[in-house]
Design a protein around this nucleic acid. Structure first.
Length: 504
RNA sequence: CGGGGCGUAGCUCAGCCUGGUAGAGCGCUUGCUUUGGGAGCAAGAAGUCGUCAGUUCGAAUCUGGCCGCCCCGACCA
């Protein structure tokens, strides 16, 4: 018998638990034996590889090149920038020894005892500003060496108190861009360029609309002058910071001594930036698009965009059906979507058809095709779109399907973006008073993005966030948020609305 | 680090109060049946009950230490 939904509980009943179950049902990742560290399984990693490859193309197109820096950072490096040090101090894993000594125990087992204490401990990178800064200091001598536009794909470690798969893990994968420039203007332009790259990527590839804006001082990256963010809304109406881009001013250049001889023959400090997105994007995709039957992956980044399920009711026609499915897959693979060859998989496993079908539903493959003896005779395929219900099935002449496959995947991509956009727009509200604000974020109210005129201080912000567990997600860019008014808390004049929300 | 809870088969858990050396469901294996579909029946494999010590003739069960994990806070991509 079929259950009403593949995932229990449903999103309405218990969103956090739904999320955990979905990650598991989709076989994307699992908790490992190492505290806070996940095992990313092939289906989840496949999604990451696509995100990585497609973003990398955009980084290269904006002039960046990839490089790799050490995992271990000398403790003293982290100490060089005061705010940065303070910001990351409480979540660092520290390496203090460089060898183990085997000690035989009375019971015959062997214990390994750390010995060889290091003169200076290393910190496993929580982010690489300091060590990349040190390299930049060596590489930059003249204004002619600038700009330096470097990106690194790597893992980082932040010893989080409460890990959750993809959203907040002790070790995670990300990319960190680090650039150095001759002038503040250039560095700020770079920061904005990458901010825009993230915004476009989220919208066009992950089908997630974001609100681009700037962080307040309280929410800023430790050591940054300005932090830009793209904020997405997921289905429980909370905000999630999906990517950040920082203008670091000359703070890190000063700390790492990134100096160059300028056009006017004077010694100057470089202006640096950094920007990153992480495997958190996977969690964002799951929470933005998933439904009560599992994940829904946007076609552009899906590890498989199409899965073909051979329907083999009789053993004597089995091989014929499988051959036909393989042939269809081959034909489809010659086509492209989003500039990449179609990723098509034929699921030939000897399992019950229904079981396979539901497995792919839970994994969120955008499109499933069924083909059996009757379809071969009628030269058609059964097409199931993941963004529609699990029962929705359309029989399409095979040739017509082959002709229209790009368009059909495009429809799914667009439908996901449209759905996510209307969810967000339906849950953004302009409010005017503190009473309205408190009611909006009351215990049993739905919440969402509150658009508020704001002129409060960091202390005001701190109080609000402690009382109501909401934070200013960003000061959004764009004319739609420019509006003369009074701060809802202090009554001071304000010319823009900011976004308040609960967040991940 | 504060406040709660939990460690028993691959997974989810029951058994513990009232000690007598192990159970269910799912998953897995095999066979038969079924086949446009998350199937049915039957048989089977699988656990030194987190760990160390104590009480006892006897401990998954009682007591204590240790380790680990989960949830709620503070922190966070």
């Amino acid at each position: 018998m079929s259950t009403p939904t593949a995932i229990t509980p449903t999103r309405d009943k218990d969103f956090p638990e739904w999320y955990q179950q979905v990650v598991r049902a989709a076989d994307m990742a699992e908790n490992s034996e190492v505290r806070g560290c996940m095992v990313i399984k092939p289906w989840g990693y496949g999604l990451w590889e696509n995100i990585q490859r497609q973003l990398d193309v955009k980084f290269k197109a904006t002039g960046h090149v990839n490089a790799y820096f050490p995992l271990l950072i000398p403790l003293s490096y982290l100490e060089k920038e005061a705010q940065h040090a303070e910001g990351f101090a409480t979540e660092c894993a520290v390496v203090t020894h460089h060898r183990l000594e085997a000690q035989k125990q009375p019971d015959g087992t062997t214990k390994l005892i750390p010995t060889g204490e290091l003169a200076e401990p290393f910190v496993i990178r929580p982010t690489s500003e300091t060590i990349i800064g040190a390299a930049f200091a060596r590489w930059v001598e003249s204004y002619r060496d600038l700009p330096l536009l470097i990106n690194q794909w790597c893992n980082v470690m932040r010893w989080e108190m409460r890990p959750r798969l993809f959203l907040r893990t002790a070790e995670f994968l990300w990319q960190e861009g680090h650039t150095a420039h001759e002038t503040a203007e250039e560095a700020i332009a770079e920061t904005r360029t990458m901010h825009k790259v993230y915004e476009d990527f989220l919208r066009d590839h992950l089908a997630i609309p974001v609100i681009p804006g700037e962080k307040t001082e309280r929410e800023r990256f430790p050591g940054a002058v300005q932090t830009f963010t793209v904020e997405a809304m997921v289905q429980d109406k909370k905000a999630i910071q999906a990517g950040t881009s920082h203008y670091l001013g000359q703070n890190f250049a000063k700390a790492a001594n990134i100096q160059f001889l300028g056009r006017d023959n004077t010694r100057q400090l470089a202006h640096t930036t950094s920007w990153g997105v992480s495997t958190r994007l996977i969690g964002t995709v799951i929470m933005a698009h998933g439904d009560d039957d599992g994940v829904i992956i946007p076609p552009r980044v899906a590890p498989n965009q199409i899965v073909i399920l051979p329907v083999t009711p009789k053993p004597e026609t089995r091989q014929e059906v499988i051959d036909a499915c393989e042939a269809l897959a081959q034909t489809l693979r010659t086509q492209t979507f989003g500039g990449e060859p179609l990723r098509v998989h034929v699921d030939k496993r000897d399992l019950q058809g229904g079981a396979k079908n539901w497995e792919w539903i839970k994994k969120g493959v955008p499109m499933r095709l069924e083909m059996g003896p009757r379809d071969i005779t009628s030269r058609s395929v059964a097409v199931c779109r993941r963004d529609l219900g699990p029962k929705a099935k359309e029989f399409v002449p095979k040739e017509e399907f082959i002709q229209s496959v790009q368009e059909r995947l495009g429809e799914i991509q667009d439908a996901l973006l449209a759905r996510a956009t209307s969810l967000r727009d339906a849950n953004m509200k302009k409010l005017e008073t503190l009473e309205e604000f408190k009611a909006y974020f009351a215990e049993n109210s739905e919440g969402g993005f509150a658009l508020m005129n704001w002129a409060g201080s960091s202390e005001d912000e701190d109080t609000l966030s402690k009382d109501l567990k909401v934070t200013i997600r960003c000061i959004p860019h764009g004319d739609q948020f420019a509006e003369e008014g009074k701060c809802f808390l202090t009554g001071k004049p304000s010319s823009r609305r900011v976004i308040f929300a609960r967040s991940y």
